[in-house]
Amino acid sequence: MSSKKSWHELEVGVVLPPATSVGYKTGGWRVFRPVWDASQCIHCMICVNYCPDMAIPIEKSEQGAVGKGGRVYKGAVRKETNFDYCKGCGICATECPSKCLTMIREEEAEQASCKL
């Protein structure tokens, strides 16, 4: 270095805009896919809090969602898994208290969706 720089003249390091990783889809890692049976769901939010990929979207719902036993669950309700990010670890299916999630092989899900 030819001349000493003071601290405010130093170059800023690499700075990234926030939350850009949402553009990076990790769903392709999946071997198993969680299949959600909404009619058995009690919207307890255990899977949402455990999901390592934040791949279970929820919403605050005034009218609620119909779940297990035909009951209407109000407050925070979960929706279908976001397969853009779900890596298929299966924590949700293991921990679900009402067993509304089952893991199937990804190719089975693919084949089922391609049936004519």
Binding site: Y24, T26, D53, A55, K87
Partner: peptide
């Protein structure tokens, strides 16, 4: 903390 990170499945 948002989705799209590369931690192992099940981490």
């Amino acid at each position: 903390l948002v989705s799209g990170h590369r931690m192992c499945a099940g981490c």
